[in-house]
Design a binder for these strands. Structure first.
Lengths: 183, 183
DNA sequence: GTCTATACACCGATAGAC
DNA sequence: GTCTATCGGTGTATAGAC
């Protein structure tokens, strides 16, 4: 391989995010990896489905590092939430990248990946709500606010893509910590 | 045709929403319309792209009737916003239907439909902001709140689909009018 | 206006040379 | 480990009978 397997998977992620599961054809994946189609099967014997699994694991790993670990790490709750917000800005490239998880809820991919996608969102919800409880929120209120934050992020990704603008994404990310911690 | 052209287009809409533009194959569209593939070309000579255009027009028309007209119609701003919220609940079938506009921002469809999709969101934003101005908001604040409302709706559609639950959708729609009109 | 049959490109996947 | 060549299937689209 010209690039490492992890680099290839990172390139695959771009293809799956942009075209969705059905639109991520072996031709596109092959070009993204700089390998012939047949060569992909040496690294991913079960084909496209295995490539998508690898992408999902890779993205979950990035998400873990950039979003979840800052929330669980040291520092005051407010600082941790600020760190998460800044890293979310990076993770979604200022709203220019669609969320891979949400992409995998469409078409054939939904049936293949609904369990891990659901788990990923639940983990995010629980982790964020945990920090808010630590900051003094009652559990029910913390969970509601965590939901609202994730809704805001997913929503602004859709709107940014539709309007082809990063302004609203910036605004939402900037105001996210205060919205979570208000009162 | 067993069904009217409009009925067929409504069936097409389900296919495009569920599978995306690339995943909406002629075989699936053919089954949805109850017609052979070749027959589709009698009604939509330019093929799949023309079918997607028809779906977009149809959905925009439904959206106009259910969401925009209530906002522009008679009654106090608060009543109109409440009516919009209830109709949004219906329009997205309590969060069980993905937003067709957001679906068309992915893959090949993005290049084909980005202009009309952008226009649709801008119209929604402007109409909603107009009502908030009428309710006493300053224009900048009204626009910001309109953005937040649409972000919430798009976001909760993603989350509802990912968690396979309608609870959060119900909560967001219920609290939407108060959030828009608070203070 | 709908159908069967078909054209041709591309799909995911495999065989086998190197 | 990567390639070319190829498979069977399906994609979009068209021709022509009825």
């Amino acid at each position: 391989m010209h690039m490492s397997k992890e680099d290839a998977i990172a390139q695959f992620a771009k293809v799956f995010r942009k075209y969705g599961y059905e639109g991520a054809t072996l031709t596109r994946l092959s070009k993204a990896a700089g390998l012939g189609k047949a060569s992909l099967y040496h690294h991913f014997p079960r084909g496209k489905e295995e490539m998508a699994e690898a992408v999902l694991n890779y993205v979950n790993h990035c998400f873990q590092t950039l979003v979840l670990e800052p929330l669980q790490g040291p520092g005051k709750p407010a600082e941790r939430i600020y760190r998460m917000s800044q890293n979310i800005r990076e993770f979604y490239r200022v709203g220019q990248d669609p969320c891979l998880l949400s992409i995998l809820t469409l078409g054939d991919a939904k049936d293949l990946f609904d369990a891990p996608v659901k788990r990923a969102f639940e983990t995010w919800l629980d982790t964020l709500a945990g920090v808010l409880v630590e900051a003094g929120c009652k559990p029910a209120e913390a969970y509601r606010r965590a939901e609202d934050a994730i809704i805001q992020i997913q929503g602004v990704l859709v709107l940014s893509r539709s309007l082809d603008s990063t302004d609203t994404f910036e605004r939402v990310i900037t105001t996210l910590p205060d919205n979570l911690l208000k009162d």
